[in-house]
């Protein structure tokens, strides 16, 4: 048997230009219906004129090490694959109860209107299984997305993990995300009131509030 893999992604936000090539490639790759998104890019604009900044935060399923979505699933439709750690949904088993949708602390899940099953980013399993990088990684304009196997010390992702200061989203949730960020802006809309400055978060999707 081949040794187990642990797929992970590092997103170097310094290289992200907010171009949405990833969002769109994800839609075409996975036929994601309008209104739902597996992958999106948030714009975080803040400051006061003329000291204004805008940074970009690409979002996708974290393929958590301790995925809440898996532990709440009553049918076992969603599970974390032993062979590579990807959290997947079996759309033939899922009943669409939306419990996992509620459970994901990152708002990554939705019910796909065509299948009636829960859906989310699966690291493009069908590509990865065939030795290709995910669609969003392949197209990434800034080459900001680095993908690979953390169990392989020579993989680009292992190297990136070793060489950089990393953060994950909402670490306090204890989910153990496998999507890591370099230089991410963790500013939240709620910080605006506290800081007394202008902060605008745009999610560029139907759910206009960040989840």
């Amino acid at each position: 048997a081949t040794p187990a893999k642990r797929y992970a992604m590092v997103i170097d936000t310094r290289k992200c230009v907010g171009c949405h090539a990833c969002s769109v490639s994800c839609k075409t790759e996975n036929d994601v219906p309008l209104g739902e998104t597996r992958s999106w890019v948030e714009y975080i604009e803040k400051g006061d004129f003329p000291e204004v900044r805008r940074s970009f935060l690409p979002r996708l399923c974290n393929q958590c090490e301790k995925p809440q979505c898996v532990s709440v699933c009553p049918t076992g439709a969603t599970y974390k694959r032993k062979e590579d750690g990807i959290v997947v949904i079996d759309s033939n088993v899922c009943i669409g109860c939306k419990y996992c949708v509620q459970a994901c602390p990152y708002g990554m899940r939705f019910i796909n209107p065509t299948t009636g099953a829960a859906d989310k980013c699966d690291f493009c399993l069908h590509r990865v299984e065939n030795g290709l990088v995910p669609a969003c990684v392949n197209t990434c304009q800034g080459k900001a997305r680095i993908f690979g196997d953390l169990n392989d010390p020579d993989s680009v992702v292992s190297k990136a993990v070793r060489a950089n200061a990393l953060t994950v989203l909402r670490p306090e949730m204890g989910t153990g995300p496998m999507v890591f960020y370099i230089d991410a802006d963790h500013t939240d809309a709620r910080d605006a009131a506290r800081l007394g400055t202008y902060v605008r978060i745009e999610t560029n999707r139907r759910q206009q509030e960040r989840v």
Partner: peptide, 18 residues
């Protein structure tokens, strides 16, 4: 249930398979 809404009327029995 999403499955019901999508026309898989009896998908919910999966609840009783596990």
């Amino acid at each position: 249930l999403g499955s019901f809404q999508a026309g898989n009327w009896f998908r919910f029995v999966n609840l009783f398979k596990v």
